[in-house]
Amino acid sequence: MTAIRKTLDFLYLASGVAAALCLIAILGLIVAQMVARWTGEIFPGAPDYAGYAMAAASFLAFANALNRGAHIRVSILLNAVTAKTRRALEIWCFAIAAAVAWYFTYYAYWFVYWSWKFNEVSQGQDATALWMPQSVMVIGGALMAIALTDNLFAVIFKGDHRIVRETVEDSFEG
Rank of each mutant, 00 (worst) to 15 (best):
V17Y: 08
A19S: 15
A19F: 03
A19W: 02
A19T: 05
A20E: 03
A20N: 04
L21C: 15
C22W: 00
I24C: 13
A25D: 06
L27H: 13
L29D: 01
I30Y: 13
V31L: 14
V31H: 05
A32L: 10
A32D: 01
Q33Y: 12
Q33A: 15
Q33K: 14
Q33V: 04
Q33F: 13
M34P: 00
A36S: 15
T39R: 13
T39W: 09
G40M: 09
I42L: 11
G45N: 04
G45H: 00
A46H: 07
P47V: 00
D48E: 15
D48H: 12
D48P: 03
A50P: 05
Y52R: 08
M54W: 00
A55F: 10
A57T: 06
A57I: 05
A57W: 02
F59T: 08
F59C: 06
F59K: 05
F59I: 11
L60G: 00
L60D: 02
A61Q: 12
F62L: 08
A63E: 07
A63D: 07
A63P: 12
N64E: 09
L66C: 03
R68I: 05
R68H: 11
A70S: 08
H71R: 05
H71G: 07
I72F: 13
I72R: 07
R73C: 09
R73N: 09
V74P: 06
S75N: 13
I76G: 05
L77H: 08
L78F: 07
V81R: 02
T82G: 07
T82N: 04
A83I: 10
K84A: 10
K84C: 02
L89I: 12
I91A: 04
F94P: 01
F94T: 01
A95R: 11
A95S: 14
I96A: 12
I96V: 12
A97N: 06
A97E: 00
A98L: 02
A98P: 10
A99F: 02
A101Q: 07
A101Y: 00
Y103H: 13
Y103A: 11
F104Y: 13
F104R: 04
F104A: 04
T105S: 14
Y106L: 14
Y106N: 12
Y106F: 15
Y107G: 00
A108L: 13
Y109W: 11
Y109V: 02
F111I: 00
V112T: 10
Y113W: 12
W114M: 08
S115T: 09
S115G: 14
W116N: 15
K117C: 09
K117V: 14
K117R: 15
F118D: 15
N119F: 08
N119C: 11
E120M: 15
E120L: 15
